[in-house]
Structures are given as C-alpha cells and as structure tokens.
Design a protein around this nucleic acid. Structure first.
Length: 373
DNA sequence: ATGTAC
C-alpha cells in the first residue's frame, strides 16, 4: 500500500485543544488499542478517560475483524432528548421533585406494551447506575434560533434528557461473548460475528426503547406531554467505509457526528450543549459524549468529603437539584469529579467538528432514590 | 457499566 507511512503516522489521533487535560493512562490505553490486529486507526475525543483496559471517549476503526469488548457491556447506551410542555411557571422545583417520586423499580409486565420482544425485560423503565441520569433542562443561550423553530421549541419549555442504556441485556451479551472468545475479536465474515451483530442490534433497540419508557414514565408523573427530538447511542459498532476501507467503526463513549443534531452534556452541575455535528473522517465521524471523568470513582468521596456533604451536593451552582440518595454515587458524580464541559466544547469547536445550536442548563436531575450509605 | 461477585 502506497499510504502505509501516512497510515502509520495517523493511526492514533487525539482531538484536543492546548488546554485539554488528558490522563496519561487513557492515552496509553488508546495506543495499546491501536495495536490490536486489523485495527486501522483510532481517535481519542476530548473527553477521553481510562476505562477497563480500553479507553472511554474514543472511536476505533478496524477492517475484517471487530472487537465486541471495545463496545463494552452497555451496548446501545445513549442520549434521548425530549421536548416537554412543562414550564417552571407551572410547576415549582419542589413540586416537580415530589411528584416524580421514585423510578428505581422496573416497570411491571402489565405496564408495558404486550407486543414487545422477549428480551426487552431487563429492568425496563429504569436508568441504572454510574453516570446514567434523567434530567430536566432549560434553554439558557440560543445560537441558532431557526433550529429551535424547526423543533417548535420555545424558551420556556423544559427539555428532558435521558442518559441510559441496555441495562442487563448488554451485560449478558458481552459476558457470553468474552466467555467464548476472550478479547481476540471476531472475524467479521464468521457466523459468530453475525450472531454478535444480531444481539448487538437487539441491545441497541432495547436501549432506545428503554430511554423512551423512562421519558414517558417521568412525563406521566408530571402529567405532562412530550416528544422525542432525537435518540443517539454512543456505545455501538457500525459497518463503515472510511478512506476506501470497508471496515467496522467502534464507538465507546463517542457520539456519532453523522446522525443530525446531538447533545453533549456536561456534569450534573454544568451546561449541556445542543450541537450540529460537522461530520469528519478525521474524528472517525464521532464527537465527545460528555465532559469525561477527571477523578476515578474510588477517590471522589475522600477528595470532597471535607468540602461538601451529600445534602450540599444535591444542590448545584445553577440552583438545580440532584436526586441521588446513594451517598457514594453522589460524590462520584459530583461536578468536581468531571472536567468542565467548556474545555471539551472548545476542543471540538477548534477542530471544526461542531456548530453550536443552544446551551442548556440543568433544572432537576434524577439519579436514584435508593437510600444507600 | 451490571436484576452485581465474595
């Protein structure tokens, strides 16, 4: 191949600004992943951070073989943004919080449509743990008013953002895969690959359906109505042709830039940005999926415990509220544990990957009502 | 990340 040298030089790309801070371990993981057999190129996005062996906030392009372990257990995890008819004039924060109650218990069979696939049964209607959340947001700054007209969105209307995935289903799929194939990946033409792709699709479908269940469940508690503006996954595998290579695009915490408008959320105490992606092969058609962790989960409590208690962490600088009765989790998910979203956006703007549509700020975040020490 | 493994 005539362009081997060029390929070798550009096998690992990182989208970053001068002030983007990236953990060394994450870059190391990115470089290690780039060495996997049949890997063509990898891109670290500005929210790149270490994961279990492989980094999060990255896209990986391979040919003839793909790696389910790169997608991880939460196949189909993503963001759904809903327009609602809720306004802060109609409902106080107190009332919204009270009326929402708990959505920690899975919906029962009788609360679900009866024509759904059998595997849509893993804790339906629940958001799960970790960085998952459901959040009411309010428009704060508008850069492209015409986009909001297209969505028939006024400044008073609250938006509902749901970040969740395929719950136990993706976990079962990955576990079975790793048991049988370890981390060697699958030859794309093999029957095993076809089988994984079929299960992967089921997980994508379930994750999307689950986000809809969550949104509808919340709106019902508020006696409100809404409609989904978009639903985009950031953990998925897609067949793709890039630079004349027919291969496989793995996105792990990487938001697609080829599916229309998307949202890049900050931490629960930071802004979120609605953006119009400008698709680019330089970023493997991907964007950051959020702010990216700054601190490891295990160290958050010790780092913050002298400054805040759990109660204080349930209120943010925006005056928004975070419903999270799990004491460990609220420290792990504190705004300080994440990078500021501004820097992530700067890196993507400088790289010409996005055009801003609007800035949103949090109003009420749901994590869990499960009371845990 | 996970109807969590010990």
């Amino acid at each position: 191949m005539g362009n081997t040298l060029h390929l070798a030089a550009s096998r690992v790309q990182i989208i970053a600004a001068e002030n983007t801070w990236l953990e060394g371990k994450a870059i190391q993981q990115l470089e290690t992943t780039a060495q996997l057999p049949d890997m063509v190129s990898v891109v670290g996005l500005p929210d790149l951070h270490p994961g279990r062996g492989y980094p999060v906030g990255a896209a990986f392009f391979s040919h003839s073989r793909f790696y389910p372990a790169l997608i991880g257990n939460d196949i189909g995890c993503g963001m759904a943004l809903w327009r609602t008819d809720l306004t802060l004039n109609k409902w106080s924060l107190d009332k919204l919080e009270k009326r929402l109650g708990s959505i920690d218990n899975p919906l029962q069979a009788e609360e679900l449509p009866d024509d759904i696939p059998e595997h849509f049964c893993y804790s339906p209607g629940t958001i799960g743990g970790g960085n998952h959340f459901a959040e009411l947001q309010q428009l704060d700054e508008i850069y492209q008013p015409e986009m909001l007209e297209t969505w028939q969105l006024s400044k008073q209307q609250l938006l509902l953002l749901v970040h969740s995935g395929s719950r136990g289903l993706g976990q079962v799929i990955l576990e079975q895969h790793v048991r049988e194939h370890g981390h060697n990946g699958l030859i794309a033409s093999s029957p095993e690959a076809q089988s994984y792709l079929q299960q992967h699709q089921q997980a994508l479908d379930y994750a999307c359906f689950n986000r809809q269940l969550i949104a509808e469940r919340m709106l019902k508690r508020w006696r409100a109505h809404g409609s989904c503006l978009f639903d985009v996954s950031h953990n998925l595998l897609t067949p793709y042709t890039i630079g004349n290579v027919d291969g496989w695009l793995h996105r792990k915490g990487a938001t697609p830039s080829d599916q229309g408008a998307v949202i890049i959320p900050g931490s629960r105490g930071d802004y979120s940005y609605l953006v119009q992606p400008l698709a680019s092969d330089r970023s493997l058609f991907s964007l950051a999926h959020g702010a990216g962790r700054k601190w490891m989960r295990g160290e958050c409590k010790a780092r913050l415990t002298g400054r805040y208690n759990a109660e204080q962490l349930s209120r943010t600088a925006f005056g928004s509220r975070v419903i999270c009765l799990d004491k460990q989790l609220i420290f792990q998910e504190a705004p300080e544990a994440y990078k500021p979203i501004g820097g992530v956006m700067d890196a993507m703007l400088q790289a010409g990957l996005v055009k801003l549509i609007a800035r949103l700020k949090p109003v009420l975040t749901y994590k869990t009502r499960g009371n845990k020490e």
